[in-house]
Write a protein that binds this DNA or RNA. Structure first.
Lengths: 195, 195, 195, 195
DNA sequence: AATGAATGAGTCTTCATTCAT
DNA sequence: CATGAATGAAGACTCATTCAT
């Protein structure tokens, strides 16, 4: 009976290696051979599990992205106040980036180099997120928690703000205090910087 | 004094062609030969003016980026109120993107595929912008126009908001009313969305 | 005595599968894995019975070719007249192709793609056939059935004629009446087309 | 003024090299790099002139084949008697093979390994030749030079005979006397081997 | 200054073959 | 005997760059 195995299955090893290599080098500068070496498998083995480099990237992107969105949705379910939920979104996003910088560098960057197909898919994901936030804001307006603002623009502002701070953590390496930064962002978004 | 020439000089033609090709295909999928053809020069001629494809991209990026920042700085000089200047920044940014979508797609996208050197340079440019905004916000705080917020975070929020809306224009093709969108963004940033 | 087995032995199953795959795709485009799948065995099993893809092809070619030649020889034994034997050769050849188009596509096509060794072996087989025919023609000349022609050339002409018509059946799919076509070929060979 | 050049143009050099390599190794065992080396050009240069290895082979095959058929047609034009023309066909075919064994090994062998497209094209060429011969035979029958035989079968017999002897020259290396062999073949075809 | 034919280092990808189970 | 996951040598093809004209 095999309970646990010190050597995880090959497919996972390849995906993990791919995360490391893609996040450091980007898609075009990553070499399939390097991913294979990093995963301690032969070059051909990569192709046993993924039909091409592009497919490997796509699968990686999709699984990471889906996992992120799923966990986000779950954690929001228990909260009532719109403000709390916005705060949770920011907190989870920044925490995710801190803990999974490699993955973050992959799924939160723009990918204009990868052909229309993936590009469209990524933008559709962005639209999904914008819709989630829009709906949240509309709910807030209905409930009287928020002012009657243009929710499409406000959603873009909110998402942009979060991504901007997140990028600074992921790419510039800023090591910020999570709780405080979260509070700061949400406070600005809710109260504004004006006097 | 430079007298206008019906046949713009070769270097400019190459840069213009490069803008078109890079913005449509991205750096890695752009072919030097295609840029040369587009510029109506021979492939070798490109190398008379730029030592490599990467150098061409860098020069292109730098000149576009500098021109943008310079015009931005000029236009801000005449304004006194911090709020007016923030509004101007947003307006000019969105207008620039609308009018120069090609260039915008180049200088406002992330470039993680281009190796450390250029990557660092681009992030340093981002830091410049963040500093400009930070300073502006600090000035606002000193003058009593703004609340005493964390200016580093607030600058990131502001920049993120602007870039986010700009991206939607540049990449998704949203055709938004400039003045209204500008007002909406700045209002949210100053007053917040909260009640 | 071999008792019929509902599950024929593995080696035969592999050979049968190889006939199907090689005849449809040719040697280079045939995949060992496809042959294994077709034979309902594992990829490694093929190598239990044949040391390499080339060896598999060789064994296949040899067994099919030998079986064909053996049956041909047997069927000729009972005939006395040279003309009858020539007619039998043509008839059996065309019938074989009609009934075993797959095998025919393998053993009656040229194989210049397979390296010197196999190439030589195949040409030696051709020489065998030419010799059988030559001897037959010489016998016919001795017996006074045939004119004194150059038997080497005549054998090549006869073999070429038969192969040519056979190819049309095997590769182009011509569905010809066996008896009539056989008669036509032999008549031309014996009487010529001249008046 | 450039009258002649000891170094023929690159495209021709590649084609010549391709003839040598393809005829010795066959399509699949030929290496693009080997062709390039043989042509004294870089590997990439081959791709400046031919979009792929397959395209190179196709162009080579087509040009050689067309040139052969064209010269054949021209040489036949001046002859009246059907017998003379059949003889000419045989003679030219064997002579061509003797003088251009490399090309012959390419254009007169079967190519079942090269995918449907080329395969079909080659069979259509074979049909062309069969039709030319058929028409010739029909003319002979009308003129009373020949017996009323099945011209489709007779054409296949004739073509098969010629190809068979030609193959022996091209692949087995038989060095036959051209005139005599030609006469022998045609005589068998016209008079038959029977008494 | 301008050119574009020539180049070859660098990559992805295939697939026959092996071997631990 | 049987297997199929793993392998890596081998090869087609790309494209930034050079240089003779």
């Amino acid at each position: 009976m095999e309970i646990s195995n010190s050597k995880p299955d090959t497919r996972s090893r390849i995906l993990q290696a791919a995360i490391r290599v893609f996040s450091q080098k980007g898609f075009h500068n990553a070499r399939v051979e390097e991913i294979a070496t990093e995963a301690q498998v032969g070059k051909g083995t990569v192709y046993e599990y993924f039909s091409s480099k592009e497919e490997l990237f796509y699968q990686l992107f999709k699984s990471c992205s889906d996992a992120y969105l799923k966990s986000l949705t779950q954690d929001l379910a228990s909260l009532n106040s719109v403000g709390d939920r916005l705060e949770k979104i920011v907190y989870l996003h920044l925490k995710f980036i801190k803990n999974h910088r490699d993955i973050a560098r992959i799924i939160f960057q723009e990918h204009h180099e990868l052909g229309e197909k993936l590009h469209r898919w990524i933008w559709s994901k962005r639209e999904e997120k914008l819709n989630i936030i829009s709906n949240l804001l509309e709910e807030g307006i209905r409930k009287g928690e928020l002012r009657a603002v243009n929710t499409r623009v406000a959603a873009q502002v909110f998402l942009g703000a979060v991504v901007s701070v997140g990028s600074t953590i992921a790419f510039a390496g800023d090591d910020v205090p999570l709780a405080e930064t979260t509070t700061a962002i949400v406070e600005i978004f809710l109260k504004g910087v004006g006097r």
